[in-house]
């Protein structure tokens, strides 16, 4: 029977993990899941709670559940690399503690995988999907992953095609061929991972236009400076890709970084930093800034 490894990094969020794992167990796909959780040095009590939950789960579920424990908190990219090394099944999917799949996700994505094996023989293919965006305290918004245009360009722009790993189902080989996550990126290592995949002739496909999972989004606790540094590290690493596009395109990406990180700053009540980033954005591309202010009747982050 076909098996899928579901790789889940976890840190001090057992409730979120339960929500995510329940969404795996509710899948309509008939195969077997091997759920691999890598605990990244959670606190003592959380770890006990996690182990009790997993023991209970193993006794009632027909799927396999494994736990890997990091002795200390290594951070997201290293934990994801530990999970990459733990792959055993033929297919792999990712999930972050706190996010949920809708019941048909894996079933629909498998149909896409089988189709793409004929359509793109010999190529590495990842199947993504549309998703819902759920900000805390707001209603769900449908987000479309645009895979039918220049995928590399769309990824760099980051509006219509986003590097969300938990949307992906692919063969284990397609992940392994893409190598490891960049451990020098505490944030956005998945963006770097996606860019590398598409730049090396990898192809993203998706099933029909229906959201297949939900992302519970929150900016709280995310350091805007750190995110900005990660963006620029990715820009520098992949400068040869950015340079394939016009200088205007490159300037717009820098503008986006500052506007985007200003949002993190403002959501974490760091007004000074957010004003600084907005000011830099306005300097980088004054016309785009003024146009944005007129169209949105204010500054939209």
């Amino acid at each position: 029977m076909v098996r899928v490894d579901v790789l889940i990094p976890h840190y001090n969020d057992v409730e979120g993990l339960k929500l995510s794992i329940n969404s795996v167990l509710n899948q309509t796909w008939a195969g077997i899941f091997r759920i691999v959780i890598c605990d990244d040095g959670s606190g003592f009590e959380k770890k006990i709670e996690l182990k009790n939950y997993l023991a209970e789960l193993n006794s009632v579920s027909r799927h396999n559940v494994c736990l890997i424990e990091n002795l200390e908190n290594l951070g997201r990219p290293k934990t994801r690399n530990v999970l990459l090394n733990a792959i055993e099944s033929e297919y792999v999917s990712w999930l972050d503690a706190g996010d949920e799949w809708y019941p048909n996700k894996i079933k629909k994505q498998f149909n896409s995988i089988y189709r793409s094996e004929f359509k793109y023989p010999g190529k590495d293919v990842w199947v993504t999907c549309d998703y819902d965006w759920q900000w805390v305290g707001r209603r769900r918004r449908k987000r479309i992953q645009k895979v039918d245009s220049d995928q590399l360009k769309e990824l760099l722009v980051g509006q219509n095609l986003r590097s969300y790993l938990w949307t992906i189902l692919a063969s284990a080989e397609a992940f392994k061929n893409n190598g490891y996550f960049d451990e020098s990126l505490p944030r956005l290592q998945d963006l770097d991972y996606f860019i590398r995949f598409v730049a090396n002739d990898g192809i993203l496909v998706k099933p029909d236009r229906n959201p297949l999972c939900v992302y519970h989004k929150s900016d709280i606790g995310r350091d805007a400076e750190e995110i900005k540094d990660c963006y620029f590290h990715i820009h520098n690493k992949n400068r040869y890709i950015y340079q394939k596009f016009s200088k205007g395109f490159q300037r717009n990406r820098v503008y986006d970084v500052y506007m985007h990180t200003a949002r993190f700053a403002i959501n974490n009540n760091d007004k000074v930093l957010s004003y600084k980033f907005i000011f830099i954005s306005a300097l980088i591309s004054p016309l785009r800034f003024i146009y944005g202010v007129i169209v949105n009747k204010g500054i939209k982050l």
Binding site: K176, N177, G179, A199, N200, D201, Y240, K244, K247
Partner: peptide
């Protein structure tokens, strides 16, 4: 090998 990262560092004139 597919694991090898192919990187063409050629920059178009405009950039």
């Amino acid at each position: 090998d597919k694991k090898v990262r192919m990187v063409n560092l050629w920059i178009p004139y405009k950039s």
